[in-house]
């Protein structure tokens, strides 16, 4: 899942003055490598702001995967069939795995897992605002797979070419797994639209109506209001602009909606012969900033669940560590 780190971070106050000639040379070498399309590895020299930006983006991406397990996990025990339950379990487990790959990538930049989790739990770190919306019906689960994972794929594919190699490698692994997420969601909605009752069809349409606009917001603010994007592009962290990705997503989704037999809740949606793209209506960015700022429908609930899971698991973490220390002592004594 995606993070809005690049768009929601405050300005860092520009590059600090370089202290020594040696550092200037290192900076020059780093810039050259970025320009040449080289990958940067964990132990390589990198500018402080590059490290900080990545740490923020990767950790927030990891948080998004983990918090993203909650809205769908909510439906595992209520899936309509054993088949859908097994699929949903596998999907939610994948998201947990994605979180782990990404935490591991972020740790290579010098922050511990516990520190990152502490930032999440204290509310200092953000996660993708899409997960602050509720999953009211079973159709929401399919819609998340189709639209939310679909938008995430659009966002994530370009990060497979990120200049920071541990992040790029994690993203390649993740992208390999995401396609199943989107397809199973669409498949589940298709079952309802083709074989379902009128009430079930209406349920799918209602879910699509509620998720459509928040999904378009997942790509972040418009390019002209995304001040950190340029630096991200310069560093090879961001490869494609927010608006370009959003347009790609709309273009890809319109036909899928037609095949599914649902409408998208936008009266301004129409094909533009001149641009060869789908034009779409104005996004309510005040809603986006409200949800990012903590006032979405489920912000408090999601965070409270994460904190509870962490606190209630503490005795398990301690016991496992105590056991391994005891075993190590025994081995030494023997």
């Amino acid at each position: 899942m995606y993070t809005q780190a690049m768009d929601t971070m405050r300005e860092e106050g520009g590059q600090p003055a370089l202290r020594t000639a040696e550092e200037a040379a290192l900076q020059q070498r780093f810039d050259n490598r970025i320009d040449a399309g080289d990958f940067i590895e964990a132990k390589d020299w990198m500018p402080d702001n590059y490290r900080k930006t990545l740490l923020r983006q990767i950790s927030q991406h990891a948080h998004s995967e983990i918090v993203g397990m909650l809205p769908e996990g909510n439906w595992i025990t209520r899936a309509p069939t054993l088949k859908r339950k097994a699929i949903l379990l596998a999907k939610v487990q994948d998201e947990g795995g994605h979180g782990l790959y990404l935490y591991a990538a972020a740790e290579t930049l010098g922050q511990s897992r516990d520190q990152m989790l502490d930032s999440l739990h204290s509310g200092k770190a953000k996660y993708s605002s899409i997960f602050n919306y509720p999953t009211l019906t079973w159709a929401d689960v399919g819609t998340i797979g189709w639209l939310v994972d679909g938008a995430a794929i659009m966002n994530q594919v370009p990060i497979c070419r990120c200049s920071y190699a541990p992040y790029a490698r994690a993203m390649i692994r993740i992208c390999r797994e995401e396609s199943f997420h989107q397809r199973q969601g669409y498949d589940s909605l298709l079952a309802m639209m083709q074989n379902g009752t009128e009430a079930q069809k209406a349920m799918v349409q209602d879910a699509v109506n509620r998720w459509w606009w928040p999904c378009l917001m997942m790509f972040g603010p418009p390019d002209d209001q995304s001040p950190n994007s340029a630096q991200g592009m310069r560093w090879g962290i961001k490869r494609v602009s927010n608006d370009t990705l959003r347009q790609k997503f709309v273009d890809a989704t319109v036909q899928q909606a037609q095949v599914l037999g649902v409408s998208l809740p936008d009266p301004d949606l129409r094909w533009n012969e001149a641009t060869q793209h789908w034009d779409f209506g104005t996004i309510d960015w005040s809603e986006f900033w409200r949800v990012v700022g903590g006032e979405g429908p489920c912000n408090r609930e999601r965070l409270a669940m994460r904190v509870a899971a962490w606190e209630e698991g503490e005795w398990v973490r301690e016991a496992a560590l105590a056991h391994s220390r005891k075993q190590a002592r025994k081995e030494k004594a023997a």
């Binding site: 790959y101 591991a104 740790e107 692994r173 973490r317 496992a320 056991h323 391994s324 075993q327």
Partner: peptide
């Protein structure tokens, strides 16, 4: 090499590696 993970001991690390890196 395919990645890393946290585990209390070697046995747990193998088990978690199975779950995290070989689900398919």
């Amino acid at each position: 090499h395919c990645g890393s993970l946290h585990a209390a001991d070697a046995r747990m690390a193998v088990q978690m590696a199975r779950d995290v890196y070989t689900r398919r």
